[in-house]
Amino acid sequence: MWGGRTGALLRLSRLWPTGLLWRGLLNCNVVSLAGSNSPRCWNCGGLGGPLRGDQFFCPQCRALQPPDPARDYFSLMDCNHSFRVDTSKLQHRYQELQRLVHPDFFSQRSQTEKDFSEKHSTLVNDAYKTLLAPLSRGLYLVS
């Protein structure tokens, strides 16, 4: 009944780390290895796919990947690049992201993933605080 991509997604959903709710297949937020043009996972060396959405995890080994330093707060929090922001949607997105990357969920993982989790969590906190307050949101927009 569930063949193809949908079936694969459903089968993978049972493999996510404890404490993480499955929110769709989250691909690699990939890193380029020195001297390589191909994006690869830091943990398994697997090739990552194109970056889009909530791609914090490697699709092959499910290791948390490093945050993308070029990603802006609006795209991280899934908001339009505008002064007008739906604060209830922003709060929901903040909670959703913290359920994915909060350090409490990575206590039994490698030190690298713990470090990436702290960086992701800090980034999500900063983005939320900045976009929640109108003054800081406006300053962020013009910067």
Rank of each mutant, 00 (worst) to 15 (best):
M1F: 09
M1A: 10
G3M: 11
G3F: 15
A8D: 09
A8C: 08
L9A: 12
L10G: 01
L12A: 13
L15G: 04
P17F: 11
L20S: 01
L20T: 06
W22P: 02
G24V: 10
L26E: 05
N29D: 07
N29F: 03
V30E: 04
V30L: 04
S32A: 13
N37M: 12
R40C: 03
W42P: 00
N43C: 14
G45M: 05
G46Q: 10
L47H: 14
G48L: 04
P50G: 15
D54E: 14
Q55A: 12
F56M: 15
F56R: 14
F57G: 01
P59Y: 12
C61P: 02
R62G: 00
A63G: 02
P66W: 15
D68F: 06
P69I: 07
A70C: 10
A70Y: 13
R71I: 12
R71A: 10
R71N: 05
F74T: 03
S75F: 07
C79K: 07
H81R: 15
F83E: 15
R84C: 06
S88G: 01
S88Q: 12
K89I: 03
K89E: 02
H92E: 09
Q95S: 06
E96G: 03
L97V: 07
L100C: 06
L100P: 00
H102K: 06
D104V: 11
F105T: 03
F106N: 00
T112H: 09
E113L: 01
K114R: 13
K114T: 02
D115R: 15
F116E: 00
K119W: 03
N125C: 02
K129C: 07
K129W: 07
T130Q: 01
L132W: 12
A133M: 07
A133D: 11
P134E: 08
L135T: 14
S136F: 00
S136L: 09
R137P: 00
R137C: 02
G138I: 08
L139H: 08
L141N: 02
